[in-house]
Design a protein around this nucleic acid. Structure first.
Lengths: 139, 139
DNA sequence: CGTATCCTAAGACAACTGTCTCATAACGTC
DNA sequence: GACGTTATGAGACAGTTGTCTTAGGATACG
């Protein structure tokens, strides 16, 4: 049977986010960070989550020190990309535009972001030439 | 321990989508529709999925006929809304604007949708007065 | 050395997902 | 009214997720 695609459940995502933010961290550091953010997990829970992430190949660990140091292997970009695609496919008939409209209608943007969005739109329609080689936007 | 929030996994979502499309359907009808769409599930699988959806309160069944007729209770809007919120919270720091930007950068819209988006933006920034009474977007 | 402390390993365990098998009840038809 | 068709019901079963317990190894420091 076809191996299910690697999926990152919510709890693992919370852990992964900490690694994205700090670049790397030990179990305890992740734990502390999450504690501050309100997640009341036990040490073992965090360790398990990190372990599962590593098994999935999403992060690696440096085991040369006593406490392993974990580091992300995939970027938040990649994960976001995947989640968004999935959402669009499942609920927006594969039409990202529908999701954009939905978002704008449901949550008004603040002025700054509205301006940014408009800028992107400009570029898209005004500057028609396909800039397909664009190296996937950095934020 | 707090009951986990009602979640609709992908397979159930596929079934639910059929109900949204057709308004209502029996197990067999759902099965046929999914078959045509390429989903090779057994009758029992579809029945289970419908059953689980009903348990979750997402759909209801009319049991007066031999074959139960299932009908959605929650709209696609609601489900979409929830999924999007979750995505934004988990991966876009609760900032819908970031997701919008991401979407626009990653997938150019076609002209029609671009225009629509612009229109929504206009309304948002130009017409500042809170028109909160707007009857929650019909598509 | 002794013992408190921190770390990982192993795995438990219930709930949820993905899928299916089998039993059994209702129906339609000759 | 017996037979094949279709339906539901019950539940099996492996894999995933959410969370933790317990055991045992390494470290630290008096």
């Amino acid at each position: 049977m076809a191996k299910r695609p690697t999926t990152i459940p919510d709890s693992e995502l919370d852990v992964l986010k900490v690694l994205w933010d700090r670049g790397q961290a030990t179990v305890r550091e992740v734990l502390e960070t999450l504690r501050e953010a309100g997640r009341q997990w036990s040490y073992a829970t965090v360790a398990t989550l990190l372990d599962r992430l590593e098994t999935k190949g999403v992060i690696t660990s440096d085991r040369s020190e006593l406490a392993f140091v974990y580091r992300p292997v995939v970027s938040s970009q990649e994960v976001r990309q995947k989640r968004v695609s999935n959402l669009v496919d499942k609920l927006y008939q594969g039409e990202p535009g529908l999701l954009v409209l939905h978002l704008l209608k449901a949550h008004p943007l603040d002025a700054k972001q509205a301006k940014e969005v408009r800028a992107v739109l400009e570029e898209m329609t005004g500057d028609k030439k396909k800039r397909s080689g664009e190296p996937s936007g950095q934020e």
